[in-house]
Design a protein around this nucleic acid. Structure first.
Lengths: 155, 155
DNA sequence: GACGCGTGATTGACGCGTCAATCAACAGAC
DNA sequence: GTCTGTTGATTGACGCGTCAATCACGCGTC
C-alpha cells in the first residue's frame, strides 16, 4: 500500500538523485570557497562577516547582532573574530552602553577587501551557478529549494 | 542606489535563487549530520568510510583505495582513521605485498554500527529529501544537479 | 547593598579539513 | 649495488565549527 511504501527505503532512483544533489552542492561550495580564497584571500566566513558589517549602521555591530545577521553561533564568532582582527579586517571596541558588550567595527582595510571580494563573489555566482542554468533551470532550482526548505521548516 | 547591470553581475532574482540553493543545501547537510550523530553516534565522515569498507572485497581496503572510493584526500583519511580506530570501528594492518602500504579493515563492531547507521541514513534521505518533493520535483532536482555538475566538470 | 538570575561574550576541548613537508619503501637505469 | 625519481602514507600547522563551561556585568528584589 502506498502509505506503507512511502515510509520505506528510498528507491534506487531516489537515492541517485539524493547523491547527485548532495555531491553537486558540496562541489559548488568547495569551488566557491577555493576560488574566493585564491582570488581575494578571504574565506566564506570572512565574507559573511564583512558583508554584515558593511551593511550595518556606522559599519559596526554588537557582536550578538553580528551573530544574528550571519546566522552564526556567538561562540563561532568569538573564535573567528580574533583571526580577522589579526589580519586587520576588523577591530573590536568596548560598548559604551553595556560594559559586557563588544562592538565589532569594519576597518578601512576591511572595507577595501570587502569591495574587492564582492566583485569576485558576484562573478563566481555567475560562473558557477547562473551560467550553468537556463532560465527554466533557474526556475526549477528555485522550486526545488523552496520545497526542500519549506519541508525542513515544517518538520 | 542605482543598480547598473554589468556583465558578470547576477540579477537580484539570480542572487536570490543562489542564496536559496546554498542555504537550503547547508541546512539539509547539517540536519543529516546532526540526526545521524544523534541516532547512531557516527558522523557523515565515519559513514562514508564504513560504507566504502562494507562494500569492499573482504571488508578491507588499501588506504589509498579507500580514499579514492570516498573521494577523500589521503591526508584527511590519515587524520580520520585513528579516531575511528580508537572507537573500535576499524583497525589497520600492514599490507602483505607492499611494506609501505596499510590495509584498513572493518571490524565486527564497525559492521554492526554500519548496518544500524544505514537504516538511519536511508530513513533520513526519505525524511529530509524524498518526502519533500513530488515526482516532478525529484526530476527537477535531478536536472538542476546534472546541469550544475556538468558545468563544473566542463569548466 | 547584597543576593540571585538572566544575558553578552569568551574559553577550552575536541572533531574535522586542507595544505605543505616529510618519510619510507618501491622500481627502473646504470 | 646504488642512484634517482615516484608513490603510499603520516605529520604538523593552522583554519574552521560545535558544545559545554565559564566569566563578567546588568538588573530586579528584598
Amino acid at each position: 500500500m502506498e502509505i506503507e511504501r512511502r515510509r520505506g527505503t528510498p528507491t534506487a532512483d531516489e537515492l541517485r538523485v539524493w547523491r547527485e544533489y548532495v555531491e553537486t552542492g558540496e562541489r559548488i561550495r568547495s569551488a566557491m570557497a577555493g576560488a574566493m580564497q585564491r582570488r581575494t584571500g578571504i574565506s566564506s566566513g570572512d565574507y559573511a562577516v564583512l558583508l554584515a558589517l558593511s551593511e550595518a549602521e556606522g559599519r559596526r555591530l554588537r557582536s550578538s547582532a553580528l551573530a544574528d545577521a550571519a546566522h552564526w553561533e556567538r561562540s563561532r564568532l568569538s573564535h573567528h573574530l580574533p583571526r580577522m582582527e589579526r589580519r586587520g579586517l576588523i577591530r573590536r571596541e568596548d560598548c559604551a552602553t553595556d560594559d559586557r558588550g563588544a562592538e565589532v567595527v569594519l576597518s578601512a582595510e576591511g572595507l577595501r577587501v570587502f569591495r574587492q571580494a564582492s566583485a569576485a563573489h558576484f562573478g563566481l555566482i555567475r560562473e558557477l551557478f547562473v551560467d550553468a542554468l537556463t532560465p527554466e533551470g533557474l526556475a526549477q532550482a528555485h522550486e526545488v529549494s523552496a520545497a526542500l526548505s519549506e519541508h525542513l521548516r515544517a518538520r
